[in-house]
């Protein structure tokens, strides 16, 4: 069986600055895979490459065996890969309901149709409601997304990411900036929505990472120094030197 996502010798340079320096990685279908590493290691750049926001300088990216290198973000999204953003990236003046519905429409096959009443699409309505229930925001449906609290916006960000039914989900620091209790709720939500899908998550909170991940990859200065199960990562000498030692256990 093909890996869900496969990176082959990916490099990314901005001018002379090398951010990603030859990354190869297999993410198995159905696993929860965390990417950790110190600030500036290139984690978000890696996500931008996989999701099509950036094009690699060298190497190739395969989605279930299909080469997607150089495809535009919407083309990759239509192939079943969806991502969230580290800095909340929503539609601020649209209601929560509209935010989620926009992310549902393509997956239901309505494309650019300008001859159908969007409010009468029962499958879209049902799916939107389902997502709002999942992220516990059904009672906030009519509120403009821009006035939600930070934690609510982060939840909505996840809702938009999963609404299209993608089976490969990339979450970029979903709990950043959250309080302890908010983080717990977010982790429960992530666990719920990633059920039966492939999850790749960037996360700084080691509690969250070791709680959630089936496997962990450690990215340091644009290279993956280890990919393994959580206990083995903890015990890995190189990881301790390069990352955990420097950041301290938390």
């Amino acid at each position: 069986m093909n890996p869900a996502v496969e990176l082959k010798n990916i490099e990314k340079r901005f001018g002379k600055t090398e951010i990603i320096r030859g990354v190869s990685l297999d993410v198995r279908a159905g696993e929860r895979h965390a990417v950790i590493g110190p600030n500036g290691a290139g984690k978000s750049t890696l996500f931008n490459l996989v999701s099509g926001r950036l094009v690699p300088s060298a190497g190739s990216i395969l989605l279930r065996g299909e080469n997607i290198t150089g495809l535009r973000p919407f083309e990759i999204n239509r192939r079943g890969l969806s991502r969230s953003f580290q800095v909340t990236n929503i539609f601020p003046r649209l209601s929560v309901w509209e935010n989620v519905r926009c992310a549902v429409l393509w997956s239901k096959g309505y494309k650019y149709s300008f001859w159908r009443n969007v409010d009468k699409l029962e499958d879209v309505r049902a799916r939107t409601q389902e997502i709002l229930d999942q992220i516990n925001m059904a009672d906030r449906a009519e509120i403009p997304a821009g006035v939600l609290t930070y934690a609510e916006q982060r939840a909505l960000e996840i809702g938009i990411t999963i609404a299209g039914g993608a089976d490969i989900i990339l979450l970029d620091e979903p709990t950043a900036g959250m309080s302890r209790s908010e983080t717990e709720r977010a982790v429960a939500l992530i666990r719920k929505v990633s059920e039966g899908r492939t999850l790749i998550i960037i996360e700084h909170d080691m509690g969250v990472v070791f709680d959630l991940a089936d496997r962990i990859s450690v990215l340091v200065y644009g290279q993956i120094i280890a990919t393994d199960e959580p206990p083995k990562i903890k015990a890995n000498q190189k990881v301790q030197e390069a990352y955990l030692g420097a950041a301290g256990h938390d």
Partner: peptide
Amino acid sequence: AITRTPFGRMCNAVRENPERVEFVGYN
């Protein structure tokens, strides 16, 4: 009527945040 269609809603989404639109499947 066009404002009330899938296309009309995606127009609003493009107005609000064209980048995010790319990551929900629309060009």
